[in-house]
């Protein structure tokens, strides 16, 4: 774990540029497509339209229709095609327009992509990335707002990656594309609009290494994706009150950098786990159990979690905002813990 966990594999430098999260993802795709002709993109409205959220804008002009493939609305078929292409050595990157639609492709992901390596041994590699615009906050309603990563933790053979910053989006996506396993790659839709400084030049960030967002001695806050940003804001609120919160951004859930979490909890003795998804059977449920198993002796107070309640995401912006965790919710949970 480190604050600057960026592996330069070329022109990484001390210079920084300001980029939108979407632009960082686009750079990752373009650089990997330049580097390896087997990398190609598949998805709905990826080409002229540039992807529903504009991530692939301009790539059709740069790489042509064979490498930026618009598909029919056939999520199961498209993901299945990508699996079939991947086992012959192609490196497809599929965009599922909204993560909610990945439900349509679950058989190909869980029964095929995830299991081929185990069943068929070393001859089988499934270098496949499924990019999933995910999350609430845009008033899209119950079928366009979910964060479903918890389901994929439960399928051995998959990796699950969820960046929180533009730099991580670029570096982690490049690593995901180079990985020989199927990777579910979450892109929180609210983050698309964030504009941040990222290192110039080419760099990758390894999967499975958490990022310490800020240091603190009183309480640990563990989060990922958009919630890592909320946790960072919560730490600022707490700092003004004299409470030192240490925020750990997991970056990837599989592989999971449990050591980083345990190390922080060993220091603080108190931990708040955060996820945007629903509560029961969620990521925090798993993380909490892991800490129970691996950090019990270090815990000075019960593990707390801040999640969405067990409901479909409501449409009305006011209702939606009321059920998605915020910095204030996280700060409240951490404050209560720190004062316990």
């Amino acid at each position: 774990m480190s604050n600057q966990d960026v592996s330069g594999s070329g022109g990484a430098s001390d210079r920084f540029r300001e980029l939108y999260f979407t632009e960082a993802l686009r750079e990752a795709l373009a650089e990997e497509m330049e580097r390896d002709p087997e990398v190609f993109l598949l998805g709905e409205d990826m080409g002229v339209y540039g992807g529903c959220f504009g991530v692939t804008r301009g790539l059709l002009e740069q790489f042509g229709p064979e490498r930026v493939r618009d598909t029919p609305i056939s999520e199961a078929g498209v993901v299945g095609l990508a699996v079939g292409a991947a086992i012959l050595g192609a490196r497809p990157v599929v965009e599922v327009m909204f993560m909610d639609f990945i439900t349509l492709a679950m058989d190909q992901i869980a029964n095929h992509a995830a299991k081929f390596r185990y069943m068929y041994g070393e001859q089988a590699r499934v270098p496949l990335v499924i990019r999933c615009p995910a999350g609430a906050g845009r008033a899209y309603g119950a079928t366009h707002s979910q964060t479903l990563e918890a389901w994929f933790l439960h399928v051995p053979g998959l990796k699950v990656v969820a960046p929180a910053t533009a730099a991580d989006a670029k570096g982690l996506l490049k690593s995901a594309i180079r990985d020989d396993n199927p990777v579910i790659f979450l892109e929180n839709k609210v983050l698309y609009q964030s504009r941040e400084w990222i290192p110039d030049g080419e760099f990758t960030i390894p999967l499975g290494r958490a990022r310490r967002v800020c240091e603190g001695g009183d309480v640990t806050i563990v989060a990922y994706s958009r919630m890592a940003r909320e946790a960072e804001k919560a730490a600022s609120i707490l700092a003004e009150e004299g409470i030192g919160a240490e925020v750990i951004d997991l970056r990837s859930l599989v592989p999971l950098d449990i050591d980083a979490v345990v190390a922080s909890v060993t220091k603080t003795g108190r931990v708040v786990l955060v996820e945007e998804g629903t509560r029961t059977g969620g990521v925090c449920a798993e993380l909490g159990m892991r800490l129970f198993e691996e950090a019990w002796d270090s815990l000075d107070a019960p593990i707390q979690r801040v999640t969405a309640p067990d409901i479909p995401i409501p449409f009305a912006p006011e209702l939606e905002a009321a059920v998605i965790p915020t910095a204030a919710d996280i700060a409240a949970a951490a404050r209560a813990l720190a004062e316990s």
Binding site: A76, G84, A85, A86, I87, A90
Partner: peptide, 9 residues
Amino acid sequence: PIATGAALA
């Protein structure tokens, strides 16, 4: 779909 994807490759 696996066969179809192999054909795409």
